[in-house]
Amino acid sequence: MNTEAASGSLSRAFLALLRRDLLLAFRRRTELLFPVIFLLVVVSLFPLGIGPGPQLLARIAPGVIWIAALLATVISLDALFRSDFEDGTLEQFVISGHPLTLIALAKIVAHWLVAGLPIVLLSPLLALWMNLPTESLGVMILTLAIGTPILSLIGSIGVGLTISLKRGGQLLSLLVFPLYVPILIIATAAVMAASDSLPYSQFLGLLTAGLITSVTLAPFAAAAALKISLS
């Protein structure tokens, strides 16, 4: 078998797995909506708890939207490997001989398309609710577009580690939130800088660097975690 054919079969396996996961997700459309509704509810609680003052809301908007995005991601993360782990599909994938890293990456991409992308698409509405200045809306969407894949990537490691536990969800949030701290800091700093009409491109650069690093490292760590959980 030459390498070209091997890489061809790898990308075919990747796409097949991605399509399967997306199909499964769309078969259960209501479940798909839970994290999105959760996001809307959490953000709407802030004006109720703090008060509707537009100035204050605009000030806290980047933080609130980003924290809500973190929470919504963690809520949806548990489904990343759960059903495949419980019905033994994951073990079949391992036996199939395809590298586990590739399988993990396919599932992470599927997770982001299902859980991360809706957050990015909804962010204009959230920004509207939180009275975010319009000039920083673009930056808000950009940070979410670059940042939410990182959340899925890092989160996949945590899911891989907790998947063999019956109630891994609560532990999962303890494992991944500390790892999300830098993303939260950099992303909100970018939006705040844009609100104050200060330069923000360096923050977006940092976020992109984080995305590239986590794309190259996280799938391997997630695969290692899954291997431990399956042993």
């Binding site: 063999s164 500390p178 701290v181 830098p182 431990i228």
Partner: peptide, 24 residues
């Protein structure tokens, strides 16, 4: 199994720790 899972987490944390420190 518990030890190996937690060891992996400790390593992931160690990779992140400098990033967390400098970002904070």
């Amino acid at each position: 199994k518990a030890a190996r899972a937690a060891c992996l987490l400790a390593m992931v944390g160690a990779v992140n720790l400098p990033i967390i420190h400098y970002s904070v």
